[in-house]
């Protein structure tokens, strides 16, 4: 509208044609990305809000209101998937924060073979999750597995890591930590290296012990890294699918099912509406847990 008026008045005054100059930063640069993202990510996300309320065969859908969600919160194995998801996310992100911090402290100290240690800790991040899953499934074999054979040498009777319903979820979570702690470590290393030396020197002049140094300087000043590690691994934990699928397929029974594996199982079984409801549940779960968590961690950070 405005552009049109400008053009008209410009032509009247005898301005050269094509009056309004185009921006050197045209908005159509957004277009390729926007189309792909919009069609293949946004549109299905919005569509899921409707289809989660239907009984759906991909060819036709019958609106059934909240029935899928009711089922999700009534069927014990589905509820267990929900609980498992949260447990899994809390265990993995908690361990990654602690171990990541510890390893980062170790790897920024003047320890020997630092480069080797950093590489060794980081490499699993880059390896195929399915490959890692299969390898550890073998290593965790209750009778022949290397882990239990090793424990037997120490006189310990190892548990059925993946066969014991009480342990299966935690075992998978531990493998997740094994694979992902390298990323937490490098994020922490970046955070620790960024802390100015002055603080440590000032603390030393004030007579701080090593423990006080850590508690009053390192920990508060590496808070941004902590926030990043927690949020990143928490979201990753809530969404996790491939490792669980490669190791236990949610078993034994439903002992290690998460929302993501439930979504896949319901999809395979042809319950498309229910599967999509699972998606919406996961979406809500992430929003409800991660948004307040992010705000909490970032507020503390702004406080400094």
């Amino acid at each position: 509208m405005t552009a049109l008026t400008v053009t008209e008045s410009a032509t009247r005054k005898g301005h050269p044609a094509g009056a309004r100059r185009r921006s050197p930063y045209p908005a159509w640069f957004f277009l390729p990305a926007a189309i792909i993202y919009g069609v293949l990510f946004l549109a299905p996300t919005f569509a899921s809000l409707y289809f989660s309320l239907t009984r759906w065969t991909l060819f036709n859908s019958v609106f059934i209101g909240l029935e899928n969600f009711v089922q999700f919160f009534r069927e014990p194995f589905l509820v267990q998937g929900l609980v498992n998801t949260v447990i899994y996310a809390v265990i993995t992100s908690g361990l990654k924060v602690m171990l990541g911090m510890l390893l980062a402290l170790l790897l920024t100290s003047n320890i020997i073979a630092r480069g080797y240690l950093r590489s060794v800790v980081f490499f699993p991040v880059l390896v195929s999750t399915v490959g890692v899953g299969i390898t550890f499934t073998v290593l965790m074999h209750p009778t022949q597995g290397m882990i239990n054979e090793g424990l037997a040498l120490l006189g310990i009777d190892g548990p059925g890591w993946l066969t014991d319903p009480r342990l299966a979820l935690i075992s998978v979570a531990l493998v997740d930590v094994w694979k992902g702690v390298g990323l937490a470590t490098v994020i922490y290393i970046a955070g620790l290296v960024a802390i100015p030396k002055d603080y440590y020197e000032a603390a030393r002049i004030d007579g701080a012990t090593r423990w006080q140094n850590f508690w009053y300087v390192t920990l508060p000043l590496s808070r941004p890294a902590t926030a990043t590690v927690i949020i990143l691994s928490f979201i990753g934990g809530l969404r996790t699918f491939d490792l669980i699928w490669a190791m236990t397929r949610g078993g034994p029974g439903f002992a290690s099912d998460t929302v993501a594996s439930v979504i896949y199982k319901q999809y395979q079984a042809g319950f498309y509406g229910l599967s999509t409801a699972g998606n919406v549940v996961l979406f809500v779960l992430i929003a409800v847990l991660v948004v307040p968590l992010t705000m909490f961690l970032n507020r503390k950070q702004g406080h400094e």
């Binding site: 410009a10 005054k13 005898g14 301005h15 050269p16 100059r21």
Partner: peptide
């Protein structure tokens, strides 16, 4: 961008010229 007035370079009005 020129909001108002006229810019002449030589004998050309250049307000909207690239």
């Amino acid at each position: 961008e020129i909001t108002g007035g006229e810019l002449w370079i030589g004998d050309r009005l250049c307000n909207t010229v690239e």
